[in-house]
Structures are given as structure tokens and as C-alpha cells.
């Protein structure tokens, strides 16, 4: 799962053109022909930088994303739900591994990425800085956050960078299981006792704003997406992805007689576009900058895992280990 809509800082297009107009033209022609870029191909420095940032943010989101849902593994209602949740959380960590390797092919070491996660230099999706207060939060995350992530990841899997596309293909396949099991938990609660329904409704109300934040600020607020889209780094605008998500999932929520905490939310049948109240973007930026309800806990847990696991890794390490950039 991932919220990749927000890529901070803009692309400096002119810098790319200054590098080598000839190589840049070949690079762009390859992308236009629909061919993939592979790790040791020439690429503009800006392309490399943005891809590292994006894949790294995605990897961090997966590894941190395992934490909110992991909260409920010990108390999952029933053995099958527990098995499914453990499998899902393991998948998320596996996705992080695939993505760190994809980013590593671009030249940033895995250790450096994890350091930048812990010291707050690189970001991850905002949604994982919110707590999973009840079992119903697990339903909302598994169903709707994973659904939003799929919209984003299916788009990105058609991008231009080979290793990222290959990782995403596998990830999307596994995410579809996450979505299905999340939907199952969601439907069970929605069709359950009045208390279960109330628990689910409360979780939906809590998560709606983070979900609306998920795809990032409106395109009118984001800068420089044009170059990233031409290079197939970014495959769809934030607004387009948000609309796709609303169009598929809002009806499924309403169908179950549940409500969403936005009185303006409705589909304009004449334009086919969904209308909604803009979520509070100040909150979004505050959370991105490390001030979310669980931000400190998430990073502290990650840091402890690295620190307290260090002796095991050191004990297994061989003196003759040779580093080579992963192939793909």
C-alpha cells in the first residue's frame, strides 16, 4: 500500500536539458516508443533523483504501513482473520524489500534509505501516521487504503523504469488479496450487530480525511508534474486518481448503508466528476513534516528494530562480502 501522490520539491527541467541534449533526446524517444529504461542506461540526473525519491518513499510506506495493522494481529477476531492479517503484514514488508532493491538499482544503498527514513529526511505516506484504534480500523485500512494504493500502483506499474514496474506487478497481485480480505472484514462488520456497524462507521469517519489526503494535493497545487508525466515517472495526476478511487469505492460504501463525513460528496452526473469538500491541506503538510498522531512512534519502532537487530546482522556478516548494485 502506498500514497504516492505527493512528491515534494519540483523538477528542474532546464537542468536536464543542459546535461546532454543528444542523450536526452534518445532517452525521451525510448520512453515515447513505450520501451523501458533499465538500471545502467543513461538517464537525466533529475529522473534518477525523482525515481529514487519516489520508490524510496513507496518502500518506506510499505515497511511503516505494516505497523498500524500489525497493532491488531494479537487480538484479531478468530484464527482465519489472524492468519490473513499476518499474511498481509508480511506481504507489506516483502513489498518494502522489493522496492528498496528497485531503488538500490538507481545507486542509493539500502542502509542510506533506512537512515533517511529514521532521521526523517525521507517521507512515507501520511496515512500510516494515524492509529488503528479498533478492529474496524483494520477493515477500513485493508479495504480502502489498499484500494487507493492499487489505483496508484496499477498506474505506476505502466511507468518507464523497468525494475520499478517489475516490482509493482508482483505487488499489485498481492495487493488484490489485501483488498479482498479487507473488504471481507468490512462487509462482515457492516452486516453485523448494531455495535459492529457503529464501530465501522466511527472508523470510516476517522479515516475519511486521511483517505482524501492519500493522493496528495490537487493538481492545481502540485508543481512540475508535466516533466514527470512525460518521462512516465508519474502516470496520472493526483486529481485523476482520486476521482477514479471515489468513483469505484464510494458507491460500495453507500451500498452498505454507511455514510461518509462529507455532506458535499456526490457525483455530478453531467460531468461524471465527484464533488467533495477539500480536506484540510494544512493538516496534510503538518503530518508529512513529522507531526502526525503516531509519527514519533512509527519511526522509533523502526529505529529500535534496526538498532536491536544490529548484533544479529553483524554476527552473520562475512568479512569477504562483496557489494554489487542489484541487477534488477
Amino acid at each position: 500500500m502506498y500514497g504516492g501522490g505527493y512528491i515534494p520539491a519540483g523538477v528542474e527541467e532546464t537542468k536536464a536539458q543542459a546535461e546532454s541534449p543528444e542523450l536526452l533526446a534518445q532517452f525521451e524517444a525510448r520512453i515515447t516508443r513505450g520501451e523501458k529504461i533499465e538500471p545502467r542506461d543513461w538517464m537525466p540526473a533529475v529522473y534518477r533523483k525523482q525515481l529514487i525519491r519516489m520508490i524510496e518513499q513507496h518502500a518506506h510506506s510499505e515497511i511503516i504501513g505494516a505497523l498500524p495493522e500489525g497493532t491488531w494481529i494479537t487480538r484479531a477476531p478468530g484464527f482465519r482473520r489472524k492468519l490473513a492479517l499476518m499474511a498481509k503484514v508480511q506481504d507489506e514488508v516483502g513489498h518494502a524489500q522489493l522496492l528498496y532493491s528497485a531503488a538500490e538499482t538507481l545507486g542509493k544503498k539500502r542502509e542510506d534509505m533506512l537512515n533517511d527514513l529514521i532521521n526523517g529526511k525521507s517521507k512515507y505516506s501520511n496515512v500510516f501516521n494515524y492509529p488503528a484504534e479498533t478492529w474496524a480500523d483494520v477493515a477500513v485500512i485493508g479495504f480502502l487504503i489498499d484500494a487507493a494504493a492499487i489505483v496508484n500502483q496499477v498506474a505506476n506499474s505502466k511507468g518507464s523504469y523497468g525494475p520499478y514496474c517489475r516490482a509493482l506487478e508482483r505487488i499489485c497481485y498481492e495487493e488484490s488479496f489485501h483488498l479482498k480480505q479487507g473488504h471481507s472484514v468490512f462487509v462482515w462488520l457492516a452486516t453485523g450487530t448494531p455495535m459492529q456497524r457503529e464501530m465501522l462507521q466511527n472508523a470510516l469517519n476517522r479515516w475519511w480525511e486521511p483517505i482524501m489526503h492519500f493522493f496528495g494535493p490537487s493538481d492545481t497545487m502540485s508543481q512540475h508534474t508535466e516533466t514527470l508525466m512525460r518521462w512516465k515517472v508519474k502516470m496520472a495526476t493526483n486529481d485523476v486518481m482520486r476521482q477514479q478511487f471515489l468513483n469505484i469505492y464510494v458507491p460500495k460504501i453507500w451500498d452498505l448503508g454507511l455514510s461518509l463525513p462529507d455532506p458535499e460528496l456526490r457525483k455530478d452526473e453531467s460531468t461524471g466528476q465527484w464533488l467533495f469538500t477539500e480536506p484540510n491541506w494544512d493538516t496534510f503538510f503538518k503530518v508529512i513534516n513529522g507531526d502526525g498522531p503516531c509519527s514519533r512512534e512509527r519511526l522509533a519502532v523502526r529505529k529500535v528494530a534496526e538498532e536491536r537487530g544490529a548484533w544479529v546482522r553483524a554476527a552473520l556478516r562475512r568479512a569477504d562480502a562483496r557489494y554489487a548494485t542489484p541487477l534488477a
Binding site: E111, D112, R296, K303, R322, A324
Partner: peptide
């Protein structure tokens, strides 16, 4: 777990996560 202090020295050095 204790909170992460504001200025973090790098926790990992290259090679920590193996080849």
C-alpha cells in the same frame, strides 16, 4: 521504545544489510 531524538546520527553503515 523511546522517542527518536531530533538529531539522529546514522543508525546503519553501508554493508550492514549484507550483499
Amino acid at each position: 521504545v523511546e522517542q527518536v531524538p531530533e538529531h539522529q546520527p546514522p543508525v546503519l553503515v553501508p554493508g550492514d544489510h549484507w550483499p
